[in-house]
C-alpha cells in the first residue's frame, strides 16, 4: 500500500481486481463499491464490526467456524443489522475450542457452506470500514480465504480496537500487559456491561460498543487518525 496516498492506492487496487474477477458474485458486490475518503469524519462512516470463531489461530491450516457481525451507523450500533452464521466444516472440532465458542459438531452440521457465508459477508462489507478486536484473526482468515478461492488478496480498510487502545496508551505513557487489552477487560475499563454469552455476534456487538466508548473518549475526528 502506498502510505502517502493510501486511499488512492486502495482504489487503484480495487478497480484492478474488479476487472480481474468478473465471475465472483459475492466479491463483485464488494469490489464495485468505492472506499470512503480517509478525511471523512468518523461519525459519518458506516462500519461493519466483525468477529470469527475458528478452529485455531493459523489461517492457512485452520478453519472458520462461525461469522458474526453488526453495523455501526450514525455512531449507533444497529442490532437489526447484526447477523450470525455457523459454517459447516468437514473436520472434527477440537474439544478445547468448543469450550471457547460453544459450537459443537452437531450444531455445525446445521451450518451453511463457507462460500455462501463469505459471499453474504462480502456483500455487507461493501462501502464499509471493517472493525475488529485484534485484527490478526479476521484479517488473516479473510485474506487466506481470498487467496485460496480467487488467487489474490483484497484491499480493505480495517480498524482494530485493540490497536487503537494500544496506541492511545503508548502515547499517554500508560503500560498495557497482554491481558489488559483483551476485549472483556477493556470493556470493564470503559464501564460497559459484561455479557454472559460468547459467540461471534455477541463479540462483534461487544467490540462495536467498545469502539463507541473509545471514540467518545478520544479526540480523533477523522478516519485516518484511527488507522495504524
Amino acid at each position: 500500500m502506498n502510505w502517502l496516498f493510501p486511499h488512492r492506492s486502495l482504489e487503484k487496487q480495487r478497480q484492478a481486481l474488479l476487472k480481474k474477477a468478473p465471475d465472483f458474485v459475492g466479491l463483485q458486490s464488494y469490489l464495485r463499491t468505492p472506499f470512503p475518503v480517509l478525511r471523512t469524519p468518523i461519525d459519518e462512516l458506516s462500519y461493519l464490526v466483525l468477529d470469527f470463531e475458528t478452529t485455531g489461530l493459523n489461517a492457512s491450516t485452520e478453519a472458520i467456524l462461525s461469522v458474526g457481525y453488526t453495523v455501526i451507523e450514525d455512531m449507533r450500533v444497529k442490532l437489526g443489522k447484526s447477523d450470525h452464521h455457523v459454517v459447516m466444516v468437514n473436520r472434527e472440532i477440537p474439544p478445547e475450542s468448543i469450550v471457547i465458542h460453544g459450537i459443537t459438531d452437531d450444531r455445525m452440521q446445521d451450518g451453511r457452506h463457507l462460500h455462501d457465508v463469505m459471499d453474504d459477508l462480502f456483500a455487507v462489507m461493501a462501502g464499509r470500514i471493517l472493525l475488529v478486536h485484534y485484527d490478526s484473526v479476521e484479517k488473516n482468515f479473510l485474506q487466506a480465504y481470498c487467496q485460496r478461492q480467487y488467487g489474490f488478496t483484497i484491499p480493505m480498510i480495517m480498524l482494530d480496537t485493540l490497536a487503537i487502545e494500544q496506541r492511545y496508551r503508548q502515547r499517554h505513557g500508560m503500560g498495557a500487559g497482554g491481558n489488559q487489552l483483551r476485549l472483556f477487560n477493556l470493556r470493564t475499563d470503559y464501564g460497559l456491561p459484561r455479557y454472559k454469552a460468547h459467540n461471534a455476534m455477541i463479540d462483534a456487538i461487544a467490540t462495536a460498543e467498545l469502539f463507541l466508548a473509545q471514540l467518545t473518549n478520544r479526540n480523533e475526528p477523522r478516519l485516518k487518525d484511527l488507522m495504524s
Binding site: 450514525d74 450500533v77 444497529k78 442490532l79 437489526g80 456487538i205 463507541l212 466508548a213
Partner: peptide, 28 residues
C-alpha cells in the same frame, strides 16, 4: 430495531430545543 449508543461521563445526551425521535433505555 434497537440501536446502541455510548455517552461519556458529563457529556450531553439530549439538549433543550433539539429534536429527539428515540425512546432511551439506560443499559449501564
Amino acid at each position: 430495531a434497537t440501536e446502541v449508543s455510548y455517552a461519556r461521563r458529563e457529556s450531553k445526551v439530549l439538549e433543550p430545543d433539539t429534536v429527539n425521535h428515540f425512546y432511551y433505555l439506560v443499559r449501564s
